[in-house]
Write a protein that binds this DNA or RNA. Structure first.
Length: 161
DNA sequence: GCCAACGTTGGC
DNA sequence: GCCAACGTTGGC
């Protein structure tokens, strides 16, 4: 039996790589490099599958917000940037025969008509248990429930007024 | 294996 | 730019 689709939230600094950069990328697809946290890596390595849907979150943004959705199009494989000295996320301890850091590929699905800001997320009772909203939460890749995902997508599509 | 020091994330 | 919270490092 097919495994149930899972839902995720991935953070990117809007200044660094925004959903608009993804929209301009070839095939509207990119590799998600730079994850250097074991918990986040383990989510990608062990649980992320092709077809899983992802909330694209802008951190350190004005305002910080979920900006849209994307879909996993390649499962975890070695992140080549860990071996490149000039890369921001270069890891001098990474061994090519056993690379610790992985990445996935994501493809744009939709840019929200109305980005859903952190302040809005905090006001929604159905979202109160989200990892993102936990005090001190710093994970850059984290699971969300289908209910949370659907709630945020609905907000992002915007209401007719 | 403890834990202090340090570095990073990310909201504000 | 500040700083709280957290992860990582390294001395012991």
């Amino acid at each position: 039996m097919a495994r149930a689709k899972q839902y995720w939230l991935m953070k990117s600094e809007a200044e660094c790589f925004s959903i608009h950069d993804l929209a301009k990328a070839p095939k509207q697809t990119t590799y998600w490099d730079g994850v250097r946290n074991y918990q986040a890596r383990n989510f990608m390595r062990d649980q992320m599958k092709i077809g899983d849907e992802v909330l694209f979150y802008h951190s350190n943004a004005e305002p910080s917000a979920v900006a849209g959705t994307s879909v996993i199009v390649a499962e975890a494989y070695p992140d080549h940037t860990q071996f490149i000295k000039t890369e921001q996320h270069y890891d001098p301890k990474a061994k090519p025969d056993n690379p610790p850091w992985l990445m996935v590929d994501i493809k744009l699905q939709a840019i929200f008509a109305e980005p859903v800001g952190l302040d809005v997320l905090r006001t929604i009772p159905a979202l109160k248990d989200m990892e993102l909203l936990r005090r001190g939460s710093r994970l850059s890749v984290m699971p969300v429930t289908k209910a949370e995902y659907d709630t945020i997508v609905k907000l992002g599509q915007g209401k007719k007024r």
